[in-house]
Measured scan of single mutants.
Amino acid sequence: MPVRRGHVAPQNTFLDTIIRKFEGQSRKFIIANARVENCAVIYCNDGFCELCGYSRAEVMQRPCTCDFLHGPRTQRRAAAQIAQALLGAEERKVEIAFYRKDGSCFLCLVDVVPVKNEDGAVIMFILNFEVVMEKDMVGSPAHDTNHRGPPTSWLAPGRAKTFRLKLPALLALTARESSVRSGGAGGAGAPGAVVVDVDLTPAAPSSESLALDEVTAMDNHVAGLGPAEERRALVGPGSPPRSAPGQLPSPRAHSLNPDASGSSCSLARTRSRESCASVRRASSADDIEAMRAGVLPPPPRHASTGAMHPLRSGLLNSTSDSDLVRYRTISKIPQITLNFVDLKGDPFLASPTSDREIIAPKIKERTHNVTEKVTQVLSLGADVLPEYKLQAPRIHRWTILHYSPFKAVWDWLILLLVIYTAVFTPYSAAFLLKETEEGPPATECGYACQPLAVVDLIVDIMFIVDILINFRTTYVNANEEVVSHPGRIAVHYFKGWFLIDMVAAIPFDLLI
């Protein structure tokens, strides 16, 4: 008679799926529990143990900040960024110097990925580790590398530091407007667009060049630039800015003055950032001319202004700041037409079709709590990747769950009947059967004279019903998954307890 339990259901295979997918890609990662103190490590794979030199037993239950890997060259700011990422709910990448158990130093890129439950609360953290440099290539500990984003994938490793954006290309926007319009339909740009040429040739750093990471940081200074100062900065030398009595002219307006920039070969870094931020506020060169004239017309309804409409929906549905990093990277690809469009465009503009998908598509409701890094690593669709929660398995109709209350009560009843059979069957065979043979035949009273025979008949009927119930009862397979398919249940029961239950259900007393 089957006594099969499996009270692990309803099970959740999400954690096993993450481990299996990460292991298949030869990654070095740990999984931490966000619900406990210090976000203790609950799993670390073999790749991480080989990377740091510690065994799994030495890593388990330690804080996922990996303070046991810190050393003299470990930056405090990087460690603080990892700790801050564990307090938030967004994906974050941090470069930090770690030390192995043998004392060797290596520069590592740590990717902190939160995993949320159905309520939107962070319950786990996945920390992925990628070695960037070994100890002989690690720089000085005073050099802070965590304020910069990861290198873009479309640049060669040897040319990542030679990417320079020439400031004269930004200063000569109005001069290039006529050349853009003359391109017409034969050019790649839309009317009114501004073409910015980027020099990728390796050259020595000069005062006129600005690194790509500095251009990325310009967006942080746009908020500090007032509207009046932006307007004066875009007017140009024809209309000098008016300053109040006793007030000095704005240095932001002076930063885009061609006369002032041409007199000296070098520009201050602050002026460069502010000038680029001011130019980015204009949607095209037409807006710059309109600002000089004193009238700013409404933005025209053409394809170039609607190019950012799908980007707005993608940004609203993005799951991490990696989408913004990807957008900034692609927006700086050289030799393309940049349409400086305000994100607050007309909502009635139709979304044009684009061959290049900048932001990841909208994630469906079932995966809105899973970050983009987890979705990318697992390579699963929205119909396959579940949320991290207890999910009731989908069972067929008329199927009994093996952990249901009805099955528990039924098993206790069958257990009592088995005990009765084990006690009274030998007793009936030894004593009652002998008395029946010696006594007179009682054929007239039937079952009324033999109450134990009636009980034995009921017990046999219950055993037959138990066999039928076992054909529709779920079970737990070797992978700790609840199986509810009727065919698989029948095959599993035939290979197991079916023969024993059938022999126990045969009414031998009635056959004798």
Score class of each variant (00 low, 15 high):
4 R>G: 13
15 L>A: 07
19 I>Q: 03
20 R>T: 13
20 R>S: 09
31 I>E: 01
32 A>H: 01
32 A>C: 06
33 N>R: 06
35 R>P: 09
38 N>F: 04
39 C>R: 14
47 G>C: 01
49 C>G: 04
49 C>Y: 01
51 L>R: 01
63 P>E: 14
65 T>A: 08
71 G>E: 01
78 A>T: 04
85 A>E: 01
85 A>R: 01
89 A>E: 14
95 E>D: 14
96 I>K: 01
97 A>I: 06
102 D>R: 01
103 G>F: 06
105 C>I: 10
110 V>K: 01
111 D>C: 05
115 V>G: 02
121 A>W: 09
123 I>Q: 10
125 F>S: 05
125 F>T: 08
126 I>M: 08
126 I>G: 07
138 V>L: 14
140 S>N: 11
143 H>Q: 11
143 H>N: 06
145 T>M: 05
150 P>F: 06
157 P>D: 13
158 G>D: 05
163 F>S: 14
166 K>H: 07
170 L>P: 15
173 L>E: 14
175 A>E: 15
178 S>G: 08
183 G>H: 10
185 A>C: 09
192 G>V: 03
194 V>A: 06
194 V>Q: 01
196 V>F: 01
197 D>G: 01
198 V>D: 03
208 E>M: 04
209 S>D: 10
221 H>A: 07
221 H>Q: 13
222 V>Y: 15
230 E>H: 03
237 P>D: 05
238 G>T: 03
240 P>Q: 07
243 S>A: 10
248 L>W: 15
250 S>P: 15
250 S>Y: 05
255 S>K: 15
264 S>M: 12
266 S>K: 08
276 C>Q: 14
278 S>V: 11
281 R>T: 15
282 A>L: 12
289 E>A: 11
289 E>N: 04
292 R>C: 05
300 P>H: 15
301 R>V: 14
302 H>R: 09
305 T>R: 12
307 A>P: 12
308 M>K: 14
315 L>N: 15
319 T>V: 07
319 T>Y: 08
321 D>F: 04
331 S>Y: 03
332 K>L: 01
334 P>D: 15
336 I>Q: 14
346 D>A: 07
346 D>L: 08
351 S>K: 12
355 D>R: 07
356 R>C: 12
359 I>R: 15
366 R>L: 07
368 H>E: 08
379 S>V: 03
386 P>W: 05
